[in-house]
Design a protein around this nucleic acid. Structure first.
Lengths: 112, 112
DNA sequence: ATTCGTTATATTTGTTTATATATAACGACT
DNA sequence: AGTCGTTATATATAAACAAATATAACGAAT
């Protein structure tokens, strides 16, 4: 066959983008590295882009998703809140379900 | 509440993009106007972009989706094939089902 | 043969987007 | 007070993308 169906989903809150695939990927990288700059480097995006993204995420969310500390031991860092972890978990779950659902729907195209 | 979930889906065939929302919109406009240039104008996109899109669609599809005639009465024109019409119908159906599915899934975020 | 409005194609211009660079602010620690 | 590596922010540069422009090809009709 070689038909494929692909999707991008994102969640808005009060008309601001809260979560999308890129943002979730970044949040995971922050969880892995403990640092926004290292997370950006690991995803090969500029620090500015990464900063803008998590700034937007935190401004859109009703509770903080990351806690960014500046100065201090190690110069600072960033880490996920429990709320942030549950958000990315829910997003991943929805995204995976969407893929499975669309794979089934794709039969409608294959049969044409 | 004011949470919203949004999505973009697209279908690939042999690793080329066959259909997406923009392409389907363009195909519908061709069906309405009988002309690629008029369709482009109605969607406020450049003629080149429109042409590139339907060229890509026809190259990706296993059967022609539009028939473009050049010269002749009226200078030419473009129209959908029956295959093309059934494709956009299937796409719209899948897309709508996806929206409904995601709206249900969104509860997982709202409850956080 | 000429006109017509369209498709087809290349080239140029402009706009938006992303990247790179630079600098300041910060706070624990020595 | 000085050092450290980070976040925060602005500005400048580069790259990607979209739009505008120009021109040729086409074929039915006159």
């Amino acid at each position: 066959m070689s038909y494929k169906i692909k999707s991008r989903i994102w969640i808005e809150h009060e008309d601001n983008v809260l979560l999308g695939e890129g943002r979730v990927q970044l949040l995971k990288a922050i969880d892995d590295t403990g640092s926004l700059s290292k997370a950006a480097k690991s995803l090969n995006i500029s620090y500015k882009k990464a900063w803008d993204l998590i700034d937007s995420v935190n401004k859109s969310a009703k509770k903080p998703v990351t806690i960014n500390s500046i100065g201090g031991k190690g110069g600072g860092g960033a880490e996920l809140t429990e709320y942030g972890k549950s958000l990315i978990h829910a997003f991943d779950d929805i995204n995976k379900n969407c893929w499975d659902f669309l794979d089934l729907q794709l039969e409608k195209i294959k049969s044409l």
